[in-house]
Each structure stands twice: as C-alpha cells, then as structure tokens.
Nucleic acid binder design. Structure first.
Lengths: 197, 197, 197, 197
DNA sequence: AACTAAGCGAGACGGTACGTCACGTCTTAGC
DNA sequence: GCTAAGACGTGACGTACCGTCTCGCTTAGTT
C-alpha cells in the first residue's frame, strides 16, 4: 500500500542554486532596478539555467519576495513593554530600521508595483508579507485595548491603515523615509486621547 | 522687441487623434489592465499610427497620466467653509468620489506601479499629480492654522502623509476603498486636539 | 490675345531646388551608399521639402538617374575614324573614363540594383540609360559592317552583350574596373576574324 | 590529445525549421519579389519565430543565398570531354538550364541587387557563389591550355569575364535569357583562333 | 552494481511587444 | 501656386525577453 506522498526518487533540489538565484535577484534589483531584472539575467548571474528558475518560482516577483525574507531581517518586536506608547514606538523604529537595510526599498517598491499588475502575485504578496506585518501591529493594539491603554476610536484596522499607509506612501510616492520626528508624530497622533464627538 | 515665438510652420497637431489616443489608453487600462496595455493596441483602437503616439508621449504611462486629467474631474473643493472639520470632510468625500469614478482605480494603480519602475516618469507623476493633490490639502490645513482651528501638532505635511498614505494604501494594498466610516475616522484622527505630551 | 500655352499661373518650378536635389542625391549616394539614401535626407541636404521631391520624381532612383546625366559626361564618341578597331578602342576607353568619374560606380550600382527591385523603374532605366548606350555601340558595328570591316559572326546585339556584359559584370560583381589590358583584350576578341565553322 | 570540439550542450538546431525557412524565402521571392520579402513574412510562412531567423542568418539575402544552393542543383559539369569546344558548350548549356529552373532568375537578381547595397553581403555572395562559378569555368580553360586546345590570347580570367558578364547582363539588364543561338555565338567567340596582331 | 527518475546548465524554439525608421500623403503659413 | 516645415497612418525593422522544449550530464534512491 503506497502512501500519499510521491516517492522522492531522483536528484534532490540544489540548495546552492536556490540561494544563488535569490541573491542574484535581490542584488540585480538593488543595482539596476526591477525593469532591468530578467529571468535570463538572474539565471546568468546565478550560474543557473532558466529552467531551474521556472521550476521553483512562478514569477520573478516571487523570487524577490522570497529573497526579501532571506536578505532582510523582517522580524519586528511586538514584545509586551507595558504601554501602548512604548510598543508603538518600538514597532515604528523597527520598521524604519528595516527600510534602511540596503536594497530593501527598491525591492519593496518592485513588489508593490508588481502586485498592481499581477492579480495572482498580489494575493501571494498580501499573504506572504502585507498581512503578516498588519498582524504584528494589531497584536500591539489589541494588547493596548486589553490594558485599557487605547484611544477610544482607534481600531486595530485604522491603526494599521494609518501606519502602513504612511510608511508605504513615503516609500512609493516620496523620496523621504521614516525619520525620528516622523515616528514621534505618528505615535502622538495614534496615542492622543480624544474624548469628544 | 524680441520675437520669442518660433514660426509655427508645418502641419498642426491633430487634436482629434490626441483625444482618441487618451480615450483608448484609458479604456484599455480599465478593461484589460495595464500589463495588457500596449502602444500598438492604443494606436490601433485610436485609429492612429504608433509614431503619432511616440511623437507626443514618452511612455504609455504618460498617456494615462494625461488621460486621467481628461477623464476624471480632478478638482477637489478647497473652498472656505468656516471650519477645518467641514473642509476636511468635504475634501475626503470628494476624494472618495474621484476613486469611485469608473476606471480611476486601475489607472491610479498603474501610474503608481509605473512610477516605481521608471525614475523619469516618477518625477512627472509627482509633478503632474501627487504634489498637486498635496497642495490642495495643504491649503485647507494652512487656512485652519490661520483661523486657530488646527490641532497643535498637525503640520500640513503630516496631514498630507496621513491622508494620502491611507488612501493610497487602501488602493494599492487592499481591496477596500474609502467609505463613510473611513472618512469619519480620519477626520476625527486629524481634528482631535492633543494638548498633552 | 492669349497664346495657346497654358496660362502659367502661380509660382514656377524652382530650378535652383532641382539642381540642389540632384546634387544632394548624387553626393549622398557616393558618400554613404544607396541604402542610407533617403528622401528625407536628400530634402534636408538640399534645403527642400519632401513634397518638392515627390512632386517631380517618382522614386529616389529616378533622381539618381537624372543626377547621373548631370554629373557625369555620358557622351561617348562614335565618330567615324576609318576602322572598326580604332572606333571600338575609343568607345571602350571613353567607357573606362566614365567609370573613373567620381561617384559614377556607386551610382551605377545603385541604379542597376534598384532596377532589379522595381519593374517600373527598370523600364525607365533601360530607356533612359541602357538602350542609349547600346545604340552608340551598334552605330559603330553597323558602320563596320557597311565598311566590310566586321568579323563574320559578330552581330551588333552580340557585340553589345559582350561589351556591356563585361563592363557591368566588372562593376557589379568584382572590385576591378576597366584597365588598358582589358580594353585590348576585348577589342582583340571582337575584331579577330574567324572563318571556320 | 586535444579535444577541439566544444561540448555540444543545449538543445540542437532544428533542421526542419531551417528547411522551412529556406523554402519559404525562396518561394516568397519567386512569388512576390524581393522588395515584398520580409523577415516577418518568411518566419510566418515557415511557422518559425523571427528570432530563429535572425539567430542563423544575418540578412534575408543570406537566406536566399543558402536557399539557392538547396533548390537548384548548382553543379555544372566540368568533366573532361576531350575538347575545349565540347566542354564549353556543356558548361553554357548547363548554365542555361540552371537559369530556367523556376525561381532562379528572380533570386539571382535579388542577390546581385543586394550585393550592391550591402558590402558585407557582397563578400559572402562572391565567396559563396560568384567565385565558385568562375572556378568551374577556369577548370575548363586550364585543361584546354594543358591540351594545347586554347586560343592564344584567351586567359581563364577573360573567359570568365566574358561568359559571366554576358549571362549576368542578360539576367539583370534585359528580358532575354540564354538560348541555343547565344550558346553557339559565345562558344564560337571564345574558341576561334586569332593568330594575328 | 545496474537501473531509474528527477534536477541541472545550456541553449534553441515560437511568440509578442518594443521603440525606431522611412515611407508617401496631407495640411499649414509664407512668399 | 509652389515652397519649406512638419504631423499623419503605415508597416518592417532588428532587439529583448518571455515561457517552453530538448539536450547530455549528474546525482540519488530503488532494485
């Protein structure tokens, strides 16, 4: 009686080639930009054949999405620090650090741009990146709510929309990134109480 | 007395062709999406030659940028209504209306995506669209400041980053657009006083 | 009382422009070769508009055909010199001189090449150039026949085929042109008697 | 022991596609003429991609040059027949037969025309066709010389110039091709003795 | 130890769109 | 009414990548 998993006969996947392809894609994007990123170019720099690329990734944007996780530390601390204000501050600073990592901004731009053009990749980008980051921030807001430390009208969704909205808008539409005063400004905007209305 | 204008010799530009090209580009993007938008397709639908397209626009994104101004009324009211709150509300509702205009969302996505890939177009998109919209919002915030009607820590820049950040993030990264409760939430966030710190 | 000729109203044909166009076409062919010869380029160098070119010549090959007559002295002496041998010798030397005229070889090549591609021009080239040259040679052969100075089997047609065949073949298929020993060889071939058969 | 042959890695050239392209180019030239021959048209009729054409041939004239060798049997007999006269006769009749092969004349015209426009192709045409044909004729003349069967002033070069000159001139400049009386006339011209001078 | 089934680098294949070029026609204002 | 200027629709050019498809070779179980 055969089990459900396919018999893994034949040669194994070459991990070396996988890393070479991820690195090549990341670096080429950082160096020359996404429009000049071609599967042929990736394969050439990685010393791999085109078929090896197509065997494992559906599009070059997916390579980049995986390469981002490999190259940049995507972890953002959501540890309990006792106050919403402190945790939000840490979250924002961690985000700023990530953006400062070499190559991250060009890659993020490329991924978001590709998500506009390819509906299938859009979903994978949302699942593999965007919603993960939202979840981290929502953890913080939920904890603040439990703690009674949250401004009345601030929902986790609104907080995420504002924070990520601002960060992405800065990345996509401007030349400025997150600086200290920006962190302060957003934190103040989201932590100030508003009792009226 | 110097004569600055060059003698306008030769055949004049065909305004009919210009409009046909803008319309074709806009409609094709709305129908089939930017990746399937080709200069050849635009020219064919417009009944124009490829060369006529290339004579007047450097890239197809530039066609779309001009078509957006033609198709969607980009005016958003910044008229003095006596209070920051009322004017901000109007601004946000006008923006929501613009997004609801048929074809606007796909075109905006395409333009922002293209701005990530082409640094030259990025500048033209900023100058021809993004900064114009920021300027409108800044008018309102500046008037509120003059009126003494503005929250203490809200600068025009921060207001623009938050508003456009949220709107663009919704358009680019989610499937939700601006609804009434969103308008309320943002307006509340930006108009609530915060005296502490 | 008006005369029979059509009232020559409006501006007359500009002879200056005609010569400028012929000269420009001839020179451009000599300099850069026929494939780089464009109507736009001719008009530009001549300081004329494209329409002026198209008004007077059906194709650029026709310009070149007319320019050849203007630039190179196409006259070849067929004067009676008393003997077939002397007249043939003169004819061949005149031909060699023509080929040595600057720019003539590139232009002849271009014209013959164009005659292969355009059946209409082919006819005009034959009428305006090829048959005129044949006629000159036939005059000589006919006079030799009348004089009883002609080899028995040499018809005017065969003489023309051999002479022009050799000259054109040299121009089109080799890098050699007509030299003195070639003139001698052909003249000997065509004047030697052959009584046998 | 050196291994001169490079490792033949990768997919092999598709011989079927090669023949389809050669056939398509030849037929299209015969049908519609060289000016209407486009690489796109060749590829389309051959069921091939344009890149496949450009990968193997630098210009469409080179396709035609190769197709000519494929379509028409270019072998012209130079076998020893005991006399210069007989061998020359055979050579001329074989040449006439070649010209009568369907499509050969339009293709020859196209090749010679193209050789006038493209200096690089000119060389390839000379090496791949013209000098091969000269060599065949020179074989015959050289054998006649060894046999003492050659007219005194007839060099192999002169014979080739006269024969190919006449044939090409007929093809390029007239509507007549080689007929029996032409064969006789040329053979007589080249075999008659001339001892005088 | 031989067999079998992937995975691998290489590279040719049928396609599609690119941006450029020149064509021949047309429209304009000026002489 | 002819001129120079120059925009127009057209269509082929040669290039760049796409994603697929052989090739001969290597690698790793399975028999």
């Amino acid at each position: 009686m055969t089990n459900a998993t396919r018999t893994a006969s034949g040669r194994r996947r070459n991990e070396e080639a996988r890393l070479a392809i991820l690195t090549a894609a990341y670096e080429l994007t950082a160096e020359a930009g996404y429009p000049d990123l071609t599967v042929e170019g990736i394969a050439a720099r990685a010393g791999a054949g085109k078929q090896t690329v197509y065997r494992w990734w559906p599009t070059k944007a997916d390579i980049l999405l995986e390469a981002l996780a490999l190259k940049a530390d995507l972890k953002v601390s959501t540890a309990d620090q006792g106050s919403f204000r402190a945790e939000l501050d840490t979250f924002l600073r961690d985000s700023a650090t990530l953006l400062a990592f070499p190559g991250v901004v060009p890659v993020l731009r490329s991924l978001m741009a590709e998500a506009q053009r390819d509906a299938d990749f859009r979903r994978r980008f949302q699942d593999g990146f965007l919603t993960r980051r939202r979840a981290a921030l929502e953890t913080i807001v939920d904890r603040a709510a439990a703690r009674g430390d949250k401004p009345p009208h601030l929902t986790p969704d609104l907080a995420a929309d504002v924070v990520f909205g601002l960060v992405w808008y800065r990345v996509l539409a401007t030349e400025r990134l997150l600086e200290d005063e920006d962190v302060t400004a957003i934190r103040r905007l989201l932590t100030d109480r508003s009792g009226k209305e």
